[in-house]
Amino acid sequence: MKYQDSLQQASEKAAQVKAFLQHVGLAAHPVNYAVCYDYISGYNAELCHVIEQKLAARALLDDFVMADLYSRFLAPANKQQEQLLNDASSMVSRMAAYSDVAAEQVDEYIQQLDVGIYQLQQFSDKQQPVPLLQQLHQQTTDFRLSQQQLKQQLLLAHQQSHQLRQELEQVKQQRLLDPLTGLYNRFAMQNQIDLWFSEQPSRRVAAIAINLDHFSRFNQQYGATIGDVILTKVARKISSYVQSSGLPVRSGGEEFLILLPDVDLRSASEIAEQVRRGVEKLRFVSSRNKTTLPKITISLGVSLFQHRENWYQFLGRTAQVLQLAKQRGRNQVASEIMLSA
Rank of each mutant, 00 (worst) to 15 (best):
L324W: 01
E12F: 11
D228K: 04
N44A: 03
A34F: 04
E12S: 08
A28E: 14
L47F: 06
L120A: 11
V285E: 13
Q313K: 06
L156P: 09
D5R: 11
V35E: 03
N289W: 03
V234C: 02
Q112F: 15
L176N: 11
Q105A: 13
R328H: 15
P294E: 05
E309Y: 13
L69I: 01
S287G: 13
V302C: 13
Q111V: 15
P131W: 02
E255H: 02
F218Y: 10
S71G: 07
G301A: 05
S251I: 01
V35F: 00
V249Q: 02
Y109P: 03
K172W: 03
I117R: 03
P179C: 04
N289L: 09
Y39H: 02
R72C: 08
L257D: 01
N331D: 11
I226G: 04
S245Q: 14
E309N: 15
Q134Y: 09
E280D: 15
E273Y: 03
Q313L: 04
H162F: 09
F187N: 12
L265T: 05
E273V: 01
A206C: 11
A67G: 06
S239F: 03
L21Y: 03
A188M: 07
L180C: 03
A56D: 09
V106N: 08
R94K: 15
L176W: 01
P30F: 03
V205E: 05
R283M: 11
I110T: 13
D264L: 09
H29I: 08
N219G: 00
R204Q: 13
Q22S: 12
Q320L: 11
R236F: 10
E104Y: 15
E199T: 11
H162W: 04
N310Y: 00
V106W: 09
I40E: 11
Q221A: 03
L155C: 14
L21C: 03
E254G: 04
F64I: 00
V249A: 02
L259D: 02
Q153D: 15
W311R: 07
Q4I: 07
A59P: 01
D68W: 08
L247I: 06
P131N: 01
D68C: 12
V285Q: 08
A224K: 07
A325K: 07
F314I: 05
R276Y: 05
